[in-house]
Design a binder for these strands. Structure first.
Lengths: 245, 245
DNA sequence: CGCGCGATTGATTCGGCTCAATAACTGTGG
DNA sequence: CCACAGTTATTGAGCCGAATCAATCGCGCG
């Protein structure tokens, strides 16, 4: 266990470059910024790592900075009635976390939890605020991101309200597939329990399992422990009434 | 009918002030801007009115400008599977409409429809873009708004996924109450059909009616045609598991 | 006054949840 | 490398909330 942490720390020291040379940056809202700004961020940022299950943010706190995810996978989960978890979206390499709370000056509205080991850069609030007032490109990329996510949320709401569990599950499988891609064996490359999938879909764990069994029996997916491989994307899109796939 | 339009047009000519003197502005993201900017907007904006049922935006188009709502009420509705309408949020005086699409450079993701007669100012895209690059206060207010709405969407998702129809209906009644306030008789001041309430809650029309009848029988609300008066807010918050009321 | 939309109520059906029992998997220590 | 314990996945049975289908009522408007 101690060994692992030690490795992770070494990995950070060795692998995280400064912002100017960061390849992950190109995926993020920091893409295309002038090198002055990047230098500025680079000197102010702080590298942080999280082990699987650890929280980057907890519902209710104030964000005093944001994380830029260098590597790893995240879930954003709200705690609903009776303490039940509802996953509202995912994050990965290149994503920015905490900006919603920081910019709306509201408390963080979801628990953000590492799905595997995560390496990230923490950038303090004042740097971000300064950049917003200075760099129009940065700001417009931030706005674009927020507005894009707002559109996605609207989609999510419509689906949740109108589609059946079976449809929603098929769609979520496709979303996971595009979001996290597949490993070398073709399985969706993210470690989610059935219970967590249920909490994305908004249903009971057993119901997820039942439909997964059905999809498997019909040859549309393959299962291996908790791992899932999609065999027939078109059929799943069909089942999920996903038209823009 | 012709009479009405004529009245409305006169009303516009008479009542809509320039941005600098606009009282509605103080509710909007244009609050607090320097008077130079306001003059600039004022000369570029165009006043538009919509009659009940008319569309400000249609799903799928590109927004080439935004509306600042001077007066009136709106619904934002997505069309889901099988053409069923899902209302994802509401708008009213002081709200900005169309900015999500404009800023994310994506097509409009919802039909925006007037719930009663609406008077609005249309501000072209280039003015907004210019202001974003020039005025940090404006931009940060825009960011704040987008991020706030993103948080609201997350809440909505959790509720939709986890609460029962009865809970959701009670909560929606409270939301309508705070969003639209009440008329002089104490009825929620918005004209929604049962069917539309159902499409906010994400349920069937008959189910809404059944629970409304229950709430009425228990003395928690009063009904008059399609109008609804809330009699016991605390009880409704209780029914809806609304803790932050 | 009558037409038609919208509200209401009842009867029936069904998707999905809950509870319960069992099987498979993961990691841990001997 | 195996046995064990604790998770996590799977399957079955029964129940319940909510959708659908069908009628009827009521009101606002021409």
């Amino acid at each position: 266990m101690f060994e692992k942490i030690s490795n992770l720390q070494m990995m950070i020291k060795k692998d995280i470059p400064n912002c100017e040379n960061c390849l992950t940056r190109k995926l993020s809202i920091f893409a295309g910024l002038p090198s002055d700004d990047l230098k500025n961020i680079s000197t102010s940022k702080r590298c942080v790592y999280f082990k699987k299950g650890q929280e980057l943010f907890h519902e209710g706190v104030n964000a005093n900075g944001i994380y830029c995810i260098y590597t790893g996978k995240l879930k954003f989960a709200r705690i609903g009635v009776e303490g039940k978890e509802q996953i509202i979206r995912f994050g990965k390499k290149g994503d920015i976390v905490g900006y919603r709370s920081l910019l709306s000056r509201e408390t963080v509205s979801a628990n953000v939890i590492a799905l595997n080991d995560v390496v990230a850069c923490y950038i303090p609030k004042d740097i971000i605020v300064k950049m917003i007032s200075k760099d129009a490109l940065f700001t417009s990329q931030l706005l674009m991101k927020a507005c894009h996510e707002l559109g996605e949320a609207g989609k999510f709401i419509t689906n949740l309200a109108q589609k059946s569990v079976r449809e929603r599950l098929a769609e979520v499988l496709l979303i996971l597939h595009t979001t996290f891609d597949v490993d070398d064996l073709g399985f969706i490359d993210v470690n989610l329990k059935r219970e967590e999938i249920a909490s994305v879909v908004g249903t009971a764990t057993e119901t997820v399992i039942r439909f997964l069994s059905e999809f498997k029996a019909d040859g549309n997916i393959e299962l291996n422990g908790s791992r899932i491989k999609l065999l027939n994307l078109n059929k799943l899109a069909d089942i999920g009434s996903v038209y823009d796939y």
